[in-house]
Write a protein that binds this DNA or RNA. Structure first.
Length: 532
RNA sequence: GGCUCCGUAGCCAAGCGGCUAAGGCAGUGGAUUGCAAAUCCGCCACCCCCGGUUCGAAUCCGGGCGGAGCCUCCA
C-alpha cells in the first residue's frame, strides 16, 4: 500500500511521488499577523504537522515551511489604529500565533515547522522575480505598481477551475484603475507617504500579497515543491496567482500536490437556542431578508475579520489542547467542520477512556505511558509476533488498518477509529487476563500489555495526541501534600466503614465527594480518586 | 449568476465498485460491583430522492432537492 494524496489540481487522489527520492518539500501558507490568532488559523498547521509526522514515519526527510506575512494593508491599518508600528504589531501577533501552535503540539524546529520565513526578509528575492516577470512579458509596471498580466499565462485558472473570460463577465469597470485586465493583480504596490516601503526599480513600495510565497518557497524549497497547502479559501485567488507567477517565472511546475484543508465553522449556540436543529428549515424563515442572512453567515464564518475570538479565550480556557487536536484529527482534513463547545465536550468525553487506560496501565505495570519509547518510523515498528497470539495478531491487524487509513490521503478520521478499537482491544485483554487482580504477576501478559501500549503511543504520536497527561490530574499528581494526606485519610476511613458494611455512610462520603468534583473508584485492589 | 465541494443511524463521523456499511456521543439489554464508577459482551442505518451503467453501487454517470465555500489581500 502506497501513499495517495488528493490533489486539488487534478481533483483526484494520486500516488505520492516526491521530486527527490526520499525527500519531501512542503509549504503551508501562514497567517498575516495583524490580530490575535483564532482557532481557524490553527487548523492548517495542526493538520500539516500530522502530515509531516506521517511522512517522516514513512521515512521521508521532510522539510516544512510556514511563512509569516508581516507586511500587508491590514497590518498597516491595524497598526495605525492601535498607534503602534507595523513591526511591533507583527512581532506581538507572531508570538501569539506561535504560542498557540506550541500549545497544540506544533513546534518550530526539526520535529515541526523547519523554516518560518518572514515576508519582509525576502524583499530582494521578490523583486528579482518581479523583474524577471517583467522581462519575460508577464508583468507590467503602472504608476509605481507592478501587475501580473493574467491573460499572458495560458493555463491561468487551472487550480480553481476558473476561466479568465468567465471571470471578467461580472467585473465592474471602476476596478480597472488602468490595469490591462481586471483580473490582473499586484506584484508590487507603490507606497503612500508614511507606509512601510522598500526601494525598488519601480519606486518605493511593498510586495503584493501573493509574491512572497513564490519567493520564499522557491528560495527555501526550490522551483518545484512536493506539497503546497492552505485553507480552501486561499485556493483563489491566492494560490492561483502564486502558481501563475512562479510557473511563469521558472517555466517549471510549481507544485505537484496542492492540498487544501476545509474551513472551520463556528457552530451556532447549539442546543441552547431551541435544541432541535431540524426546525430551522421553516418556510417562514426562508423568506427572511437576504442581507440579514448573508450577515449572519458572515458572523458564523470564523475567518471573517469580525467577531473571531482568540484561541486562548475562546478555546483553551475551556478545553484541553489535546482535546482540540483530537477533535481536529477525528474528521477528514478536507471537510468543513463545525466547531463548537458541544462538539468539543463530546470529544473530551470520548477520549477520557484513553486517559483512564493510561492510568490503569500505570497502576498495573508501574510504568509511565508518556515515557514509553515508541518507534517513530514505520521501518522500525515492532514485529508484533508474540504471545498470546490472538492478542498480537489483533494488534497487527489494527496497525495495518491504521496504515491503510493514513496512506489514503491522510484519513485521520479512520485512524482515530482504529485508536478506539485498539483501546477496546487492550481493555479487553486487561479484563480477560485479569491484569488488575490475580493475573497481575503474569510477566508474559504484562509484557504483552506494554507492547500494546507502546503501539498505542506509536500511532497516537503521529496524530500528535496523548503526549501528556490532561490538566485534570489523577490521584496525587497535581495536588499538594495536604490534600493528598486528607484524601488518604478519607479513603482509609471509608475503607473501614465498607469493611463493616456501613453502606449508607460510605456512599454518603462518595456522593459528597462527587459533588466536590472528586471521583472515587472502588477497585479490587483498593480505591483510587481523582478530580473530575 | 459563475466556479468548487458536500448530503451515511437521534447527533458527530469513516467508507473511493464486491465479505455481516468502521468508530465516537447518546440510548438500551447483560456480565462485573454491597450499590456505584470504570471495564467487557450484545443491540441500535431501508447510505437525500428519481433514473442509468454494471454480474454487483453508499461508492461511477445524468437529473432533482437540500447544504457549504469561493468569485471581495479571510487559514
Amino acid at each position: 500500500m502506497s501513499l495517495r494524496i488528493y490533489s486539488t489540481l487534478s481533483r483526484t487522489k494520486e500516488e505520492f511521488k516526491p521530486v527527490k527520492p526520499g525527500q519531501v518539500s512542503m509549504y503551508l501558507c501562514g497567517p498575516t499577523v495583524y490580530k490575535p490568532a483564532h482557532i481557524g488559523h490553527m487548523v492548517g498547521p495542526v493538520i500539516f504537522d500530522t502530515i509531516k509526522r506521517y511522512l517522516s514515519y514513512l521515512g521521508y526527510k521532510t522539510t516544512w515551511v510556514v511563512n509569516i506575512t508581516d507586511v500587508d494593508d491590514k497590518l498597516i491599518v491595524k497598526a495605525n489604529e492601535l498607534g503602534t508600528t507595523v513591526e511591533a504589531l507583527a512581532k506581538k501577533m507572531t508570538d501569539d500565533y506561535l504560542d498557540n501552535l506550541r500549545t497544540l503540539g506544533v513546534t518550530v524546529g526539526p520535529d515541526g515547522i523547519d523554516h518560518m520565513p518572514y515576508a519582509t526578509q525576502y524583499i530582494a528575492e521578490m523583486q528579482n522575480i518581479i523583474s524577471g516577470l517583467i522581462a519575460k512579458g508577464y508583468a507590467y509596471p503602472l504608476n509605481g505598481d507592478v501587475y501580473f498580466e493574467c491573460c499572458r499565462d495560458e493555463d491561468y485558472g487551472k487550480l480553481s477551475g476558473r476561466k479568465l473570460d468567465e471571470m471578467l463577465a461580472g467585473t465592474r469597470a471602476e476596478t480597472m484603475d488602468g490595469k490591462h485586465n481586471p483580473a490582473d493583480f499586484a506584484l508590487w504596490k507603490g507606497s503612500k507617504p508614511g507606509e512601510p516601503a522598500w526601494d525598488s526599480p519601480w519606486g518605493p513600495g511593498r510586495p503584493g500579497w501573493h509574491i512572497e510565497c513564490s519567493a520564499m518557497s522557491q528560495k527555501l524549497l526550490g522551483d518545484t515543491i512536493d506539497i503546497h497547502g492552505g485553507g480552501l479559501d486561499l485556493m483563489f485567488p491566492h494560490h492561483e496567482n502564486e502558481m501563475a507567477q512562479s510557473e511563469s517565472f521558472t517555466g517549471k511546475c510549481f507544485c505537484n500536490f496542492w492540498m487544501h484543508n476545509g474551513l472551520l465553522r463556528k457552530s451556532s449556540a447549539g442546543g441552547k437556542i431551541g435544541g432541535d436543529h431540524s426546525r430551522h428549515g421553516d418556510s417562514a424563515e426562508a423568506s427572511a431578508d437576504m442581507m440579514a442572512v448573508k450577515q449572519a453567515q458572515e458572523e458564523q464564518k470564523l475567518a471573517g475579520s469580525k467577531g473571531a475570538e482568540s484561541v486562548k479565550t475562546a478555546v483553551f480556557a475551556k478545553f484541553d489542547p489535546e482535546t482540540v487536536r483530537f477533535f481536529l484529527m477525528a474528521t477528514h482534513y478536507r471537510s468543513p467542520v463545525d466547531f463548537g463547545d458541544d462538539r468539543l465536550e463530546e470529544t473530551a468525553k470520548s477520549i477520557e477512556g484513553f486517559y483512564r487506560l493510561i492510568e490503569t496501565f500505570g497502576r498495573i505495570t508501574g510504568a509511565d505511558f508518556y515515557s514509553l519509547s515508541a518507534s517513530t518510523t514505520r521501518a522500525k515498528t515492532p514485529s508484533l509476533d508474540g504471545e498470546p497470539a490472538a492478542f498480537f495478531s489483533e494488534l497487527k491487524s489494527l496497525r495495518d488498518r491504521y496504515y491503510d487509513c493514513m496512506d489514503d490521503d491522510f484519513n485521520t478520521g479512520g485512524a482515530v477509529g482504529v485508536l478506539f478499537d485498539l483501546r477496546k482491544a487492550i481493555n479487553g485483554f486487561i479484563a480477560s487476563a485479569k491484569l488488575e487482580s490475580e493475573g497481575k504477576s503474569n510477566a508474559a501478559n504484562i509484557a504483552a500489555l506494554t507492547t500494546a501500549m507502546t503501539l498505542l503511543k506509536e500511532l497516537s504520536n503521529i496524530l500528535g495526541v496523548f503526549r501528556q497527561p490532561l490538566a485534570k490530574k489523577a490521584s496525587g499528581s497535581g495536588d499538594d501534600e495536604f490534600v493528598n494526606g486528607i484524601m488518604r485519610l478519607v479513603i482509609d476511613l471509608r475503607a473501614a466503614l465498607r469493611k463493616e458494611k456501613n453502606w449508607p455512610l460510605s456512599d454518603k462520603i462518595r456522593n459528597d465527594l462527587t459533588a466536590l468534583k472528586v471521583v472515587l473508584e472502588d477497585r479490587p485492589d483498593g480505591t483510587t480518586w481523582k478530580r473530575g
